[in-house]
């Protein structure tokens, strides 16, 4: 085997090893569970703001805490931790626009509507992002 053949073999080894490092997607239950906790948390906070109910506010915060807990558990169980995917300008733009509109609603119109918009809007983009990650 010549040096060039050996170099060719090594390059193929590298290509195969890099391809093997592909991160596995989150388990299937993570997408519905996290989206439900996220949207449900904001929905409860919105209801708490309209009805001035402490129990709903606590419930909303617990649901949002559950969202982060599930996310951390799912992430730590992955065998390969990949670099975070680069978000496209469209996706970033939609998220930023949602937050800005929610801030405006919160300040000038209605706090409950702002929280509801955050929960449903960001919940939808979260769902779509995870779906894209599962397909990749």
């Amino acid at each position: 085997m010549t040096t060039a053949d050996r170099a060719q073999d090594d390059l193929q080894t590298v290509a195969a090893a890099v391809a093997a490092a592909r991160p596995e997607p989150f388990p299937r239950w993570v997408r519905p569970a996290t989206t439900a906790l996220f949207a449900g948390g904001f929905l409860a906070l919105a209801l708490a703001s309209w009805t001035h109910t402490l129990a709903l506010m606590i419930g909303g915060l617990v649901l949002l805490g559950g969202f982060f807990a599930v996310l951390i558990v799912a992430f730590t169980r992955l065998g390969v931790r990949a670099y975070p995917p680069r978000s496209g300008w469209l996706q970033n733009g939609i998220d930023i626009a949602l937050v800005l509109v929610a801030m405006a609603l919160f300040t000038f119109v209605d706090q409950g509507a702002a929280l509801l918009l955050l929960g449903l809007g960001l919940g939808t983009t979260w769902w779509l992002n995870l779906a894209r990650r599962e397909r990749a």
Partner: peptide, 28 residues
Amino acid sequence: IQNPTKLAVVAFLSGCLEADFKTVRDRL
């Protein structure tokens, strides 16, 4: 990293932030 196993492990890790020992073992 001229040894093929060492080269494969290093190349595998270059494709991710970090990996679990068991996953590297199984995939390689």
